[in-house]
């Protein structure tokens, strides 16, 4: 313990909450409050209503939600496949090749997402690949952006995996493919679901590249939220944002449940 006097401790906590509450807790509270309001001219919003949520229930907003969910699902599965494969392959490599693959797969984190969007737009609007204006290009962009995180989390999990498991399995006569399938993947399962959850959440909230690419019939939730706020419908935007947060949290929660079940199996 750093501060030993009671007064000092209380002072530290006061400083903490004075900084923490308005900066981190308030934003979410405010969005939730606004999503039920029709007017905010005083200290607190007024005229509570469910109208914004009813609007989400039908039409464009619902479509945006399913679009986002589908995009995130496809992107995270693809990212896990590519990133996980790359991490497994890279684990056995040493030296220069390993460094190159590491650098390659974390590069999408460093490149601005807008530029990733622009580059896909430039590359896939011309032959031999014509994807512009389809849902595929959005999913592709999301996949590129979240693969880096899948690669890093699977790689970190592999590094933590005790080689004794693999070696014991090999000494018992198990071929590498069998070891991978029966020992390593089951042991990696918690990390894999966590990585999938992370990818899903990131994809659900992706805005930058999507703004560059989305076709009119494949408009994910963040774009819809931007559209609402841009035309001044802040309260409707807030309701959509709540939907986005809740659905992201639900997916993370389910993934977390899978994780704990796997660890207790």
């Amino acid at each position: 313990m750093l501060v030993h006097s009671r007064a000092g401790r209380i002072a530290a906590w006061v400083v903490f909450f004075v900084l923490f509450l308005p900066l981190f807790a308030l934003p979410f509270l405010v969005i939730v409050m606004a999503s039920f309001a029709t007017n905010w001219s005083g200290a607190f919003p007024s005229h509570p209503t469910f109208a914004h949520y009813r609007a989400v229930g039908g039409g464009d907003s619902l479509h945006a939600l399913t679009t986002s969910l589908l995009t995130a699902l496809c992107a995270s599965v693809l990212a896990l496949l590519v990133g996980g494969w790359a991490a497994l392959a890279a684990e056995k490599l040493r030296g220069g090749t390993r460094k190159v693959i590491d650098a390659l797969f974390v590069l999408p984190v460093a490149v601005p997402s807008v530029v990733v969007g622009l580059s896909l737009l430039v590359a896939f609007s011309q032959p031999p690949f014509l994807l512009n204006g389809t849902a595929k290009i959005v999913i592709l962009a999301h996949t590129v952006l979240v693969t880096a995180f899948a690669y890093q989390s699977v790689g970190a999990a592999l590094a933590r995996l005790d080689p004794a498991y693999e070696q014991s399995a090999a000494s018992l006569g198990a071929r590498p493919a069998y070891v991978l399938w029966r020992v390593r993947l089951p042991l990696l399962l918690p990390s894999l679901t966590a990585a999938a959850g992370l990818c899903f959440a990131l994809s659900m909230g992706e805005l930058s590249a999507t703004m560059m690419l989305y076709p009119p019939d494949w408009m994910p939730l963040p774009v819809q939220i931007y559209g609402a706020t841009n035309r001044g419908s802040l309260f409707e935007g807030a309701a959509l944002a709540v939907v986005l947060m809740v659905s992201t949290l639900l997916v993370l929660l389910v993934m977390g449940r899978v994780r704990t079940r796997a660890t207790y199996r």
């Binding site: 070696q167 006569g173 198990a174 020992v183």
Partner: peptide, 16 residues
């Protein structure tokens, strides 16, 4: 290793 037909027990057992 998997072709050597050995049994091995390591320090921390490494039970799956």
């Amino acid at each position: 290793p998997y072709k050597r037909g050995i049994g091995m027990v390591v320090q921390q057992y490494a039970l799956f």
